[in-house]
């Protein structure tokens, strides 16, 4: 195998892996910027490459979060699509169990 092809393929695999790891595990702001940039890039790709769906998913990832109803360990079996994600619940612990009035 030519050295340049060998190194190119390994380099590409590494780049994709690092990008994916950052999107999945990185801070939210970095995740969103990266998803949005990759989504724009994928949207420019020729239709024949079939990246339309990936672009949509990346755009949705930039807008919110993917995965289940959590940060995405996907272990809970939740299958809610990203587009239908619920806004985060923000109930301070101290306020839980207070009976609503009126």
């Amino acid at each position: 195998m030519p050295g340049i092809l060998d190194q190119g393929l390994v380099g590409l695999a590494l780049l994709v892996s690092m990008g994916y790891a950052v999107i999945r595990l990185g801070p939210k702001s970095v995740r969103r910027h990266l998803s949005s940039a990759l989504g724009r890039l994928a949207a420019f790709a020729p239709p024949a490459w079939g990246l339309g769906r990936a672009a949509e998913r990346l755009a949705m990832g930039a807008a919110g979060k993917g995965g289940g109803g959590c940060s995405g360990c996907e272990s809970c079996g939740s299958e809610q699509p990203a587009a239908q994600q619920t806004p985060e619940i923000r109930i301070p612990v101290a306020h839980i169990s207070r009976r609503a009035r009126g």
Partner: peptide, 19 residues
């Protein structure tokens, strides 16, 4: 199974300290 659904399921606990 996973701590994440477990932690989310604590929403059914009424007492805040218990939760």
């Amino acid at each position: 199974a996973c701590a994440i659904p477990g932690i989310m399921a604590t929403r059914t606990i009424q007492n805040p300290r218990d939760r």
